[in-house]
Design a protein around this nucleic acid. Structure first.
Lengths: 181, 181
DNA sequence: CTTACTTTGTGCAAGTTGTCACAATGATGT
DNA sequence: ACATCATTGTGACAACTTGCACAAAGTAAG
């Protein structure tokens, strides 16, 4: 594939594709382009998605369930090795092959199962405490669905997903567009 | 509140806050700062979130359910006025006060209920078709959970939410950090 | 072998975004 | 009334990002 083709695919320019790729080394062959299979493989390694990751899900509510059952999740190498919830009704019950654990045993389970990533699908008022405990327990990264800005050390990456903000971004763009006309 | 306080809140710098706000006009008083109530109100108007929006949910699966039941959704003025699904088992049943409609009546319902925003919580292979029909039916914006890049006219804003990409972004950051050390 | 063609990798220019610093402005106290 | 203090709004500058254009390097064909 040429950088031109890749650019069309990714809605950008050929020069941008070449610059971005060259940042990580020299992948292509002049006059020929990039060999798709090799490029994929090298990018997967660079992105750190050439292996599977052990994930713990905190919050067995509807968002947690939707994530847990999301097929792309497992197929892309994210392996859910623990589910936690604070609701005594849910603790002990199972989703698929995972039984839901109490937060009382959070630290022990996190260590036993070598959890690397934590997904927080819990209300905002509980998120900070769990995040801090997860960091303390040695987690490497956090995917946060709670609508608060987590306070964690700089070296722990956090990705926020905030549905309301996404909707508000849409509202803003629509409002702007109507004003222009 | 001073720009300094706002900056601390939003993890940015005071100068940035002032530049951003000044872009939309002159809100503050020199020597005093910004009056919180008025600032909020004016920003809400600018963002287009000073009113409610009529939303249709397409896809009554687990992601759809999680969204529908998400309290912040309604409390921020996003009013779900229709739910669609293609599964005959689900059509006719109801979630709360909304009964689930067939996609056969998509165009009619969209118009009757004045839908402004569509949330696509359906598999990738169905997303493009529904998106095109929504645009045709006069929708103003799309929130897309399907992992494909929708092809819609430039004047229709689309926000994508892709959980796998969020996780991969975490994986990348973790991998990078480990390399540095 | 040589010529014509393709496509990368990159220096440079253009454009965009973020930061600094300070005059302008209003509040506050004497 | 005046001096002092706090804070905005903004021009000038610095840092970063994107796009252009072309030499370098490789392919292909006669």
């Amino acid at each position: 594939m040429s950088s031109e083709q890749l650019a069309a695919w990714g809605q950008t320019t050929a020069a941008q594709v070449r610059k971005d790729l060259s940042h990580f080394g020299s992948f292509g062959k002049r006059g020929l382009g990039y060999q798709a299979g090799e490029l994929c493989e090298r990018l997967r390694t660079l992105l750190g998605i050439d292996r599977s990751w052990k994930v713990a899900l905190v919050g067995a509510g509807r968002i947690g369930l939707a994530l847990y059952e999301y097929p792309a999740f497992r197929s892309r190498g994210y392996d859910c090795v623990a589910i936690f919830d604070s609701d005594p009704e849910k603790i002990g019950t199972a989703w698929g092959d995972q039984s839901i654990c109490s937060l009382d045993v959070f630290e022990r389970v996190m260590e036993e199962r070598d959890v690397e990533l934590v997904i927080l699908a819990i209300p905002a008022d509980a998120a900070q405490e769990v995040a801090s405990r997860a960091v303390e327990a040695g987690v490497n990264g956090i995917l946060n669905f709670a609508p608060i800005r987590l306070n964690v050390p700089d070296e722990i990456p956090v990705e926020d997903v905030n549905l309301v903000i996404e909707l508000e971004a849409l509202s803003f763009q629509i409002t702007q567009r109507k004003k222009d006309v």
